[in-house]
Structures are given as C-alpha cells and as structure tokens.
Design a protein around this nucleic acid. Structure first.
Lengths: 268, 268
DNA sequence: GCAAAAACAGCATAATACTGCACTTTTCAG
DNA sequence: CTGAAAAGTGCAGTATTATGCTGTTTTTGC
C-alpha cells in the first residue's frame, strides 16, 4: 500500500463523501489507472471501501467503454507499455522493484541523469533515497510528480507535446531540448530488448524520443524484466552495442541472460 | 440532525421563499452540480423540501437539456470526467469553481491558450467541456495531467526546472520556450491584484515566468477570487493596463470591483 | 499437478427508477 | 370573474439497478 502513499492525501479527501455514486467510483478508478498505469482490484476495493466484486463490475464496464484494459487481478491503462504485453506482467511489481533497487546502487551524489517513462523507472523514482542529491531530466509526467517529493532531487521536465497514451512528452520540441544536454546516465525503459537487434518499440514517436535520449547520455542503462528479454517490436531504437548496462531482476549468471553475454554489456 | 449535516454540506441561499418555482429549483440544482460536481437525489429532495420524484423529474429534464448528466442515485456535472483532486484542501474551492465556469465561456473551438498554475486554473482544466477542441500550453504538472483526460485538448508542456513549492516549471528554459509562441488567451492565475500596481508575486522566479507568459499571449485574463483584490506582494509582474479581462466570483457590478472600473479592464 | 488467488454465476436485499393516477395550482380564453 | 385545460406534485405499486455474499470454476505461479 506504499504504492498509494504519495497520493494518500487525495484519497483522504475523497472519503468525506458518505456515499459515492457509481460514476464517481469509476472516475476514481480511471484516475488511479492514469496515474499509476496499473491498479489491483484488491487495492481499489479497500481504497473505495466496497467489495471486490463491485470494483470488478466497475472495471468490466470501463473496459467495455474502452477507458482501460481489464486484466487478471486488476486493470492497466490503455496504450501504455503494457498494451500488447501478456497480462501476467502486471504482476511484475516485485521484479521491477528489485531492478530499481539494483539501479539505485549505480547512482552517486551530484550526478545528472535522464529517466524515460515506464513503470520500472517509476519504481526507481519512488525508491530514490531522500538523501541522494541528483539532477533528473524526464519526459514523464508521473515520474516528475514522483520526483517532486524527493527533497534533494532537482527535477527538470522535458517539455513538448504530451502523448495521451503514454503520458510522456514527444515530438520535436522535446527532442530539441534533449539535444542541448549531455547527462551522466540514462535509464532507458523499454518494451523489448534483443541480443541481435537491441532495443525496439512499437510507437514511432517514442522511438524518436528514445533515440534522442541515447544521444544525450554518456552511459545507457536498460532496466528490463526478464520477460522482455529476446522480444522484438516493429521499430528499432538502437543496437545492443549502445547499451552499457542491462539490469534485470535475475542474478547475472542466470541462463536466461546467456545470449547477452559477450556483447560488451555489463549485466546486473 | 441529518438536516443540519446536509445543510452544512451544501450552501443554501434560496430559502427565503416558502415555495419554489420549478425553474428556481432547476437553477438551484444546476448550481449545486456546478459547485460540487455531483449531487444525490435524496439530498436535493430534503434541501428543497420536495419529494424525490419531483427532483428526479427535474433532473430528467435538465439531463434532456444537456445541462448535467443523470446517473443512478443523482447527477454529475457534464465535465465530470476528471481527476479527483481534493477540493477540501483547496482554499475557496467554490468561488474558484464559479470563476472557472465563467472562464469556460470565453473559450472557442480551435483556440490556443496558455494556463499558468494555481488552483483556479486547475479547476478550469477540470471543467473544460469534452467536446471543446483546444491547444493548451502549461507549465503546471497537475494541470497537464488533468488535461490529459480531455480527448480534444492537445497538451503541450512547458519544460524546464520544476519548482518543488509551486509544482510548475520555472527558469530560463521555460521562458525560452515561451518566447517561441504566441497564443490567443492566457489565463494568468495570480496571488495579488491591485488597481494601481497590477499583478504582483512573492516568488521572483515565478514573476519571470509570468512576465514571459504575458509576452506570449494576445489577451490576458486574470481569474481572481475577491479576497485577492487590492492585495500586494513584493515583486511586480505587470501593471493593470496589461490585463484584458478580470474574472471574479462576484457579479460585475459588485462594489468590491469599484476600484477596477475605468481601467479598461473587462469585468466578468 | 497443486494450492492460492481471481473470476464468475446466481441469489438476496436494499435502494432507486418508472408508471399511472389523484389531487392541487396555474393559465387563459370567454 | 369563471371554468376548463394544462402543468406540477406526491403517492403507491411495480420494475430495475446496485451491491455484497456464497459456492463453483478458471487462472496463475510454483
């Protein structure tokens, strides 16, 4: 439930209502989905103080209205990274948390970093130690908001047109801004990583943005849950040689990582 | 007991009449919906001292007139599809809601507008009708997120360093981006407005940003609750002559607005 | 495969919505 | 001013919806 801690103040107010209309509940659910990209039925039920069945019915309707995608155990936002990924990945929170913890060890006081969108990076943003001094560039609204609560992190938002699907800025203006910076590290969340073809994406605009991010960074770190290893999408972001560090939830010697050895990529 | 609870929750102004005409009732209902975004049939019935059936019929008509949306158990405002950000912790939420409603009437399809931060503008963002086609520039994270739920609104975020206090971007990069645009309208939320000294702020960086916003817009609209009228802060943003329209929750002929007449400012 | 979690189906209950009708008030032509 | 038509309101009975609960089936992770 730490998950909701940041927004606890909002939820509190919400419950000043004695009754909540169904419509309000649905709106609240959509809100949660938009902010967190994923929600669990059980969390929603306890937040809204209704039974899981009711939440399930609400989500079923919202799904039918094409406002979100219902998955086993919860719901995910439309068009986000999850869109075309098997639903079991919704449960990968623990894996992502493990990745985030490893990633934190790469950070040092005073560094300037770049965080792409995606839930793994969101997890990283949440878990940044409060005492760490950083300057973070990001094109993701949810990550920016998350980072605002870190006292010693300077947040610089990459402006431009905001894509409704992915909730990150895309387009020329963002790429332009990226062209003016050179950061120490870039945590490049990705949909697919392949030992031969490197990073790939299905959204053309996001590909352009990520390419620009790569050019703006001295070092590229790819946090990726093991399910994504070896998968491929339509458009190429960069070859495997561009990636400096690959972080998964696995141990570095795990056999699933075999294809990524001897590629001059550091495995964590 | 219950009566007083309800009384406290809604602000009832029209009880001078023993007896209310249907039109007055409908007007009252609309007002409640406008302020609270949602109402319950049962609450309205006890407030208006009529049967639930009557309220139901009223709401049915209002729904048919497209003034609100009827839902099981009550009604919600048409622009209800927004993130539920706490209304109680926001100061003077009802006045700000009234201002936002007036502001919406200034908007036309196809316009390009600039929204500064602040809760009044957040309220405006929430209440934008879904069918309105707009391009919105904003340096505020919460407003950007709010706007993402509006299907026909293109959101362009003004990037740069994000101020932790105000949760908006400030600094050179933001000002730079502003220098490249010229929008139709700018809704410039403000801390203080004075008939002689115009708009003032206490935060130097925000002053710089707002100055840039003024230069980037053909028309400046200042939404301001009446408490702020006549107040002053340390730094000046602009003189009163720069303001085109002043929107308050008051009627335009209210005596509190007297000092702002004859300044070539349109009062709404 | 197994155990746990989640989804589903069906049922019971309470709240809300609708319908028709009787009664009151308003409107308005003559 | 008057009376009839029209509009407005409340009520009772019925229909529909919303919700939680129980027991069963399916999915999931190991």
């Amino acid at each position: 439930m730490q998950y909701y801690a940041v927004f606890a103040k909002y939820n509190l107010v919400l419950f000043n209502f004695d009754f909540m209309l169904k419509e309000e509940r649905k709106q609240f659910i959509l809100n949660e989905v938009r902010i967190h990209s994923r929600v669990l039925l059980t969390d929603l039920a306890s937040l809204l103080k209704v039974s899981v069945d009711t939440v399930r019915r609400d989500i079923k309707e919202l799904d039918k209205e094409n406002k979100l995608k219902k998955v086993h155990g919860g719901a995910v936002s439309l068009g986000f990274d999850y869109y075309h990924i098997p639903s079991h990945q919704v449960y990968s929170i623990e894996k992502k948390a493990a990745i985030a913890e490893k990633a934190i060890h790469l950070l040092k006081d005073g560094q300037v970093i770049l965080l792409s969108g995606g839930t793994t990076n969101l997890e990283l943003a949440k878990r940044l130690p409060h005492k760490l001094h950083l300057t973070c560039f990001t094109p993701s609204l949810s990550i920016a908001i998350q980072l605002l609560s870190k006292k010693n992190v300077e947040v610089i938002f990459i402006g431009g047109r905001v894509s409704k699907d992915s909730q990150i800025t895309v387009g020329g203006s963002a790429i332009n801004m990226l062209s003016e910076i050179k950061v120490d590290l870039c945590f490049l969340g990705t949909n697919s990583i392949h030992p031969r073809d490197g990073l790939t994406e299905f959204d053309w605009e996001i590909v352009q943005l990520k390419k620009a991010m790569i050019h703006s960074s001295k070092k590229i770190i790819s946090p990726s849950i093991s399910e994504k290893l070896g998968s491929l999408q339509r458009y190429k972001i960069c070859g495997p040689e561009e990636i400096d560090i690959l972080i998964t939830e696995l141990e570095p010697w795990d056999s699933k990582l075999e294809p990524f050895k001897n590629l001059n990529i550091q495995l964590l």
